[in-house]
């Protein structure tokens, strides 16, 4: 059996282990979910403004209070689904030297990190369900009606997760070289807040800023799946956006792989 096939066969078990871990630390996970309530706070801000007068987007689209509710509830849901935190785990294991154990195992460490992050998905989805119910019951008209959009949506979410994960790996692997690689993650988040549609729907940006966001990776981590599910992007446009997501996935995947290979060679498992 080739190593790749062996790794693949281990995936279900790894996912089961990860799920058990998620179930064991469920309180911690719920707290993590609660700590991503920023979209809900933004929803309060924007609805308080849109209740006075509809907000005019740069493209001419008017956003009513209900539009904002639909948008930010979707942001909250997508944010839960695309979460990855391998940067912190990787950083921790490199500094503590425990990564050595993972390197000895016959499974690629990155596969192990990916499955352990993914295994939290079922429980995270469960926690998100009340918000989904709220969204469907109260603001169904804010969701896409095109069935094709809903077929595209899982692909878009998967790409967004992949991009997030590869960025995590890249930053985490920089811990091979520098002690303060997590500061980079902080920087990533500052940009993410601005350019991913997390605080402001990108459509409301001044045109030059919106154009800039199209060329940065942040939009493809969050805004694209949200735009697909809210039907803000028509199907053809959405298809183009998902293709760009795939392109980013490829680019960042190569960067992550290169950083990892470069870093592992320097790894000395200090700590002991």
């Amino acid at each position: 059996m080739t190593p790749a096939l062996a790794s693949l066969r281990a995936v279900p078990t790894l996912l089961r282990v990860g799920f058990a871990e998620a179930a064991a630390y469920r309180t911690e996970m719920v707290v993590w979910v609660l700590s991503t309530t920023m979209p809900l706070v933004m929803m309060l801000l924007w609805t308080s403004i849109a209740d006075v007068a509809a907000v005019q987007g740069a493209g001419g689209a008017a956003w009513s209070s209900g539009d904002f509710v639909g948008y930010f509830l979707s942001v909250f849901i997508v944010r839960q689904l695309v979460a990855a935190w391998a940067a912190w785990e990787l950083n921790f294991e490199i500094r503590q030297g425990t990564l050595a154990l993972r390197l000895l195992r016959p499974i690629h460490p990155l596969l192990a990190f990916a499955t352990s992050n993914l295994a939290y998905l079922p429980l995270r989805t469960l926690v998100t369900l009340p918000v989904v119910a709220l969204l469907v019951v109260t603001h169904r008209d804010a969701l896409a009606t095109d069935l094709r959009a809903w077929l595209l949506w899982p692909v878009s979410v998967a790409c967004a997760w992949g991009i997030t994960f590869f960025v995590n790996v890249t930053v985490g692997a920089l811990a091979f070289v520098t002690d303060s690689s997590l500061k980079l993650m902080d920087l990533w988040f500052a940009f993410f807040f601005v350019f991913s549609g997390y605080l402001v729907p990108l459509e409301l940006f001044p045109p030059w800023l919106e154009a800039l966001s199209a060329w940065l990776p942040f939009r493809y981590v969050l805004a694209v799946p949200v735009e697909v599910m809210t039907g803000r992007a028509a199907f053809d446009e959405a298809l183009g956006l998902v293709l760009r997501q795939a392109a980013w996935l490829g680019v960042l995947g190569s960067v992550a792989a290169a950083t990892w290979r470069f870093g592992v060679r320097r790894f000395q498992a200090f700590g002991g």
Partner: peptide
């Protein structure tokens, strides 16, 4: 960068108009 992230939504909300905003 965080300061920009904090101020930017406000810039978008107000965008020079006195009627819009909190």
């Amino acid at each position: 960068f965080w300061t920009v992230a904090a101020v930017l939504p406000l810039v978008v909300v107000y965008r020079g108009s006195s009627k819009a905003g909190v």
